[in-house]
Design a protein around this nucleic acid. Structure first.
Lengths: 330, 330
DNA sequence: TTGTATGCGTTATCAC
DNA sequence: GTGATAACGCATACAA
């Protein structure tokens, strides 16, 4: 494999000149430039970035930690991150953590070992303390999920306002007995969506009934189980707000199994607007997050932190949107 | 940031000894080892892999190029690749190509620039010629999709046999007029699934009727459109075999829109067994690929190619499975 | 068992 | 404009 030395020799110039041609860093005579370019082509030279990165002490690589690539919700977010990164000469390294702290830490080693310039977390399992520690020493941005107390920037929607809007929509359809299928986790979005649900009810003078709040794990099956609970307890709401689309689809399956119809007997709404929400029958009413923009803004922020333009942690909220489909229109 | 020099000074030994302790490469006296370990802890030292990689001319990093992370089909494959990679001290770099050749090439530059030791392609858009060129110079494995003529290893199922099995199942259910919703692309899997479809029909003495073959793009909407074609042309089969689950779900939606039932009026089967296939109502009959194993075997193969254990291109087929659910049982 | 010295491929500083 | 050369952090051949 040809090195910059070989190119210099072939072109009859010094390595410094070759480097200057490659990086356009300063003036080079047309004659020397041509000689270098010819030599590069001749030798099929590819710069070895290991050398450059070592010298520059940077890798133009950004880590993106996500719990799973099988959640379609992340796909557009990642696209946004990649587009912004590429526009700025950066590459993105996607890392599947499986919501496993130890796996997160393995990947973070890559940054600690200078193989990446910064990291974006999409739902970390680490403690606020650990996150703050890392953010003190390296460029860190949190996207969608975040730790409130961590001293690190974050970009997300206002989950409380979004859940509030969702429940208000159900109330407007005439529902008073509204169930919630939430999750038992420590995600800030969960906490905030529950808050939004409660505030919307209280504002209408509806008492928050804890027996109408069930829990799943975001997944389809857990949505079935949670909805079944209502039937088992013989305490069935006329509308159910699920904090994920997959659970909402599970809830619908459970409702059908009882011979009931959606939305005629029970209205169901989800959260996230995954692709499948519109593919389903009935189309699923849900809250759409600006996924692509969340990705773009997160990466822009990270690049600024890497560049040293931003020192203090930033908080950025983007707009969400209520998408009304058949599952709540009855 | 502390370097190996700092550690050496702190421990009162040479950098060589520190390096030896870190890599366990040769004998070090217990006393020196302890001094080094203490110094490392003291200084919170993290080796800079840029230096090591440059010196060793390897990165312990594998590139995985996939057309999109939003296709749930890839998720378990990637998991398998990651598990094997991690077990062998390797990291995986997921790269979203969006089925864009230029994007593929950008990522391949990372390998050409020595930032990765090898690459696994999941559905490349490059020509066989280009692929062969790259495989000549770098470790390359193709997973699931592959170019027949490319001189590079590949791991996949036997798509022809799988499609054959699928259509045979429909025939066994009593169907004779069986439609195919395929894709207009150059993927080998497409070609082979079409072949399997034809062979299964011919074997039963059923003439292959080209008007019963429609095309989509793997996606849900294209499944609707393709199925609609049958209705528009007033040439409706009693069973439809779709080469992707998403198209199958689209086909079902189209059938429902005509007031017909699945499988009572028309049986539908898919391919891939994505998670959603079992979540849907009716559950979708489909062909399951051993996704996790495909990933594992591909990565094992790549590591062997990187290690120089394998020189000649290998071809490995894994077993598929027919998953029978309600969408064809009527 | 340990230390010295060299080089991996690149960029940047300086002197010319 | 150009070239010689010193880093960047690490691993290792060789010498001791």
């Amino acid at each position: 494999m040809a090195t910059i030395q070989d190119v210099a020799k072939e072109a009859g110039v010094s390595v410094a000149t070759v480097s200057r041609v490659i990086n356009g860093s300063s003036k080079v005579s047309p004659k020397a430039r041509k000689a270098v370019l010819d030599a590069i082509r001749q030798l099929n030279y590819q710069p070895n970035l290991l050398g450059r990165n070592l010298r520059l002490m940077q890798t133009k690589m950004a880590l993106v930690l996500l719990p799973t690539i099988s959640n379609p919700f992340y796909s557009m977010i990642v696209k946004g991150m990649e587009d912004v990164a590429h526009k700025n000469g950066y590459n993105v390294m996607l890392c599947n953590t499986n919501s496993d702290v130890s796996r997160e830490k393995v990947y973070l080693e890559l940054m600690k070992n200078r193989l990446a310039d910064g990291v974006i977390f999409l739902a970390s399992e680490m403690s606020e303390e650990e996150l703050s520690q890392i953010a003190m020493r390296f460029p860190v941005v949190q996207c969608c999920e975040y730790k409130e107390e961590a001293r690190a920037s974050h970009v997300s929607i206002d989950n409380k306002a979004a859940a509030y809007m969702a429940v208000k929509h159900l109330i407007k359809q005439g529902h008073r007995k509204i169930g919630l299928i939430s999750c038992e986790n420590s995600f800030i979005s969960t906490k905030q969506r529950e808050e939004g649900y409660k505030i919307a009810l209280e504002e209408e003078g509806i008492l928050v009934d804890l027996s109408l709040i069930k829990h799943g794990d975001y997944g389809f099956r857990s949505g079935i189980r949670a909805m079944n609970q209502f039937f088992i307890e013989n305490n069935v709401p006329t509308a159910v707000f699920c904090i994920s689309d997959s659970m909402a689809i599970g809830a619908i399956k459970s409702i059908w199994a009882k011979g009931l119809k959606v939305p005629k007997d029970i209205a169901v709404m989800g959260f996230d607007d995954i692709n499948f929400a519109s593919m389903y029958s009935p189309g699923l009413t849900t809250i759409a997050q600006p996924q692509y923009d969340l990705g773009c803004v997160s990466m822009e922020l990270l690049l600024k932190v890497i560049g040293g333009e931003i020192i203090e942690p930033q908080t950025i909220y983007l707009e969400h949107e209520l998408i009304i489909r058949e599952s709540t229109l009855g």
